[in-house]
């Protein structure tokens, strides 16, 4: 049985990962650390596990791995501490808020011979895996262009505090799309043109924008990463991709398979997705990766490459011009 600790429940995905750990028969959620003591105690009670208010102390226990869901800016500190304590790591995306930090984190993991996997759960969505197969089989021929969206509702909290998040919707969402495309197309981003703004909320980070990427192969990609979904929107957001190829097009909506709930109590229409949980896929893969001591499916390098694209997008927005990577 693999023993796993969770470092911080600051990111809401920690709940989903904890649920997945409980479902996996090869793992056990042994302990929790959180700088928010109240939240830490609540989560420890919820998952019937031990709360530590001293992270060093938790890392001294015999846990095999940690899942890091702290605020983005703390990923570096937590990954390096865990790596030095010889714990394998699944780190929430984005890997870090600065490229240099990500490089230091990767070096720490390499020096300590521990696995660093970055949490890009979209790769595990059944729809995305089917899409990959269709693209790789060249059913629509060579790809010319791709339109993508990763919309969401504004999450609030530390996500809109740039000193903790490193940025707004661009930091939060672009990485998912870039990771999926790098994985499917085995292609890298050549240049970016991005425009961001804060149009929907009175917050100190960007809440909307549009991005045009050109891949090394020449494929043009657009990304809308905005927190533009209204409060009445039937789900938290979307992940959509539309491929335009020489022989046709392929439209993909990762969350399309849903049951519609006309909820009179909350006065809104809700969409409840029923396909396999992508977070569960991510956790199961991480556990398997540690147990088999194999190279992670999603590496630190994957996290770094996506972060480089995000940083280039911010530079492009600042300079108001195209930026090469």
């Amino acid at each position: 049985m693999m023993k796993i600790g969770i470092i911080s429940f600051a990111h809401m995905h920690a709940l989903s990962y904890a649920n997945a750990l409980q479902k996996n028969s090869h793992s056990e959620l042994t302990c929790i650390w959180d700088n928010d003591r109240q939240r830490g105690h609540e989560m420890a009670n919820k998952y019937q596990t031990t709360y530590y208010d001293d992270l060093d102390q938790m890392l001294e226990t015999d846990i095999d791995a940690v899942i890091i869901c702290s605020e983005n800016v703390h990923h570096k500190q937590h990954v390096i501490l865990a790596a030095n304590a010889k714990k394998h790591i699944l780190c929430e995306k984005p890997i870090a808020t600065e490229v240099e930090d990500a490089q230091e984190m990767m070096a720490a993991c390499k020096n300590n011979d521990v696995i660093l996997q970055v949490a890009f759960p979209v790769r595990f969505a059944p729809t995305i895996q089917e899409m990959k197969q269709i693209i790789r089989e060249k059913r629509i021929g060579d790809i010319l262009a791709i339109r993508t969206t990763n919309h969401g509702q504004m999450p609030g909290g530390w996500f809109v505090d740039p000193t903790l998040s490193g940025g707004g919707c661009a930091t939060d969402h672009i990485v998912h799309i870039v990771d999926v495309l790098r994985w499917i197309l085995q292609d890298e981003v050549n240049d970016v043109y991005a425009v961001f703004d804060t149009k929907f909320y009175d917050i100190p980070v960007e809440d909307c924008g549009q991005v045009i990427l050109t891949l090394e192969s020449g494929v043009v990609v657009t990304i809308d990463p905005s927190w533009s979904r209204p409060k009445t929107f039937p789900t938290w957001g979307d992940v959509t991709l539309e491929f335009f190829g020489e022989n046709g097009s392929l439209k993909v909506d990762a969350l399309k398979q849903h049951v519609t709930y006309y909820n009179d109590i909350n006065q809104r229409i809700e969409e409840m997705v029923y396909t396999d949980d992508m977070d569960e896929g991510l956790i199961n893969d991480f556990i398997d990766c540690v147990q088999q001591q194999r190279k992670p499916f999603i590496t630190g390098e994957d996290g770094l490459k996506t972060l480089e694209v995000v940083k280039a997008c911010y530079r492009s927005n600042q300079l108001q011009q195209k930026v090469a990577l």
């Binding site: 010319l144 262009a145 425009v195 149009k199 924008g209 045009i212 043009v220 657009t222 335009f244």
Partner: peptide, 19 residues
């Protein structure tokens, strides 16, 4: 951007700064 005259994508910034 125009790809082979089959796909044109244009990012437009309007005067009120919407996109």
């Amino acid at each position: 951007k125009n790809i082979n005259n089959r796909y044109i994508t244009t990012q437009i910034r309007l005067m009120d700064d919407s996109f």
